[in-house]
Amino acid sequence: MMHAPAITIKNAYLRYKNHLLFDQLNCYLPASKTTCLLGPSGIGKTSLLRLLANLPVDTKTQQAAEIITSDGLPLTHRISYLAQTDLLLPWLTCLENTLLGYRLRKQQSHTIRQQAELLLNKVGLSKAFNKYPHELSGGMRQRVALARTLLEDKPILLMDEPFSALDTITRLQLQELTATLIKNKTVLLITHDPLEALRLGHQIIIMAGQPAKLSEPSLLNNKPPRDLTDPFLLQQQGILLQQLTHANEKSL
């Protein structure tokens, strides 16, 4: 894998029809660290992520941003993406779904197939290689999606509420697993769950207001994933919840 760069977003601007979502937004994602982005629904978190991933937008949206990487190379082909829904293709098996990127780029090989199997083993799906998505539970499907994302082996990872559709226990398990597997990647994680941000993040940013502004990042010192029984976690969760409630009121 290429070395993970830090990313600076400068003067991000997005207008949808006549509604200004954000303007002059600045954001710094430190290299090989996980940045968690929290904030009320509809504030523009996903739009910011899409802007970063350079995904196409409809004609009603105007957007711009200056994106600078610490190594000076463009972001293209250096990003992998994990969404809220697993986006598994129902006609492909788990293994084939994991290999989707390589199938799309016509880069499938014996080696990459072995790596895919290894990753599926790591996420606990050793018995489901040849199963189809409809035969799996929601948690297992998201595990396949995680394996697919990691197999891409990209230094930058964008995650948009990847665990929000899962039940609490599955979510906690997957957070732990993800944290161990995404070390050394520059990660932007959008979430609604303060506990998730506190367990997985190196820094937390809150997006609020209209047009939206970003808070100063609050840094978390020890290494993720943080233990659930950590009293620091609970204390921080209280503070973060207060901040989020405040952010919600400000954005109404």
Partner: peptide, 8 residues
């Protein structure tokens, strides 16, 4: 979007 990010 996924295919786009994957460079297809």
């Amino acid at each position: 979007d996924l295919a786009n990010i994957m460079g297809a």
